[in-house]
Design a protein around this nucleic acid. Structure first.
Lengths: 158, 158
DNA sequence: CGGGATCCCTAGCGATACTG
DNA sequence: CAGTATCGCTAGGGATCCCG
């Protein structure tokens, strides 16, 4: 299983070229993941992040700055009538693209770690339960033992 | 987007009941993710993990023990003819279930972080490119802005 | 409300040396 | 080859206080 790509793996391991390693270095802090969870729930304000994630404001500040730098969130100035201007942190497209990471963790943890409360992902349009899977261009659900990797030559735009 | 579940969120945040937080606590170290990457490539031996992940043997030992405790890997004794018995670390079903986490990170990092080399996931059976997505029980690909959560009463077996 | 500054503790990790 | 033991560094993060 997956043995066929062993030769290619040496092309980027262990010298820091691996996207997984870079992702973990950039946003791999536990509180970063939890801040992103809150962002998906609609949280945008500094103190709300701090309270709901359960970390100090110092940590919140540090993590939010990192997430803005990496591009998952963006800082936006807003002004409520009669109030002074404040900052809020809103999801970017890059941040939305990060959802599979957070929800795959959510799904695995819910399934395989001891917990009492249960939450399910749902497709809001049709109401059915949903989960993270690997899908190929021909529309097949890819069992994880049929998954391979290949090197391609150059960067491709989205 | 996703605002409808705000009330439910307070049911498990921030008191450590969140599956994402538990997952990060259990296997959230960067080298744990890289060890899992190697496991998916077929690596099973101690020194191979250490070399290919690029960490010391002390760190390798600590991470492997954690991964075995959590159940992602299992320790197996083997014996090559003419050699003495050795240990190897092999993927469990729980470990295979963790693949979406690692590959979602792989996918996001490859897409959104600066890098030169490119790798693609492929469906080995049909050869088509593959990616991590959210899928509902009715077979719809769920756009991430149509994703919701709901609380369910009790644990369900797989 | 939205932070920044300071102090301190802990976990992840590298380096090195030693064991069977 | 497959580890264990020790040391020291650094980043994540809590606690507390202060500021506009």
């Amino acid at each position: 299983m997956l043995q066929g790509v062993l030769a290619d793996r040496d092309a980027w391991s262990p010298v820091g070229e691996c996207p997984i390693e870079k992702t973990m270095s950039a946003v791999g802090a536990k509180s970063s993941m939890l801040i992103m969870r809150e962002a998906y729930y609609g949280t945008t304000r500094f103190d709300d992040f701090a309270k709901r994630v359960g970390i100090t404001k110092a940590a919140t500040s540090a993590r939010l700055s990192e997430l803005v730098n990496v591009g998952l969130l963006t800082k936006r100035r807003y002004q409520e009538p009669g109030q002074r201007a404040r900052d809020e942190y809103v999801l970017t497209d890059v941040g939305v693209d990060f959802m599979p990471v957070v929800f795959a963790m959510f799904q695995w943890g819910r399934e395989h770690l001891p917990n009492n409360r249960k939450l399910e992902l749902t497709h809001l349009d049709c109401g059915a339960d949903a989960r993270v899977e690997v899908l190929c261009d021909n529309g097949h659900r890819v069992p994880l033992d049929e998954l391979g990797m290949k090197l391609v030559r150059r960067s491709r735009a989205r």
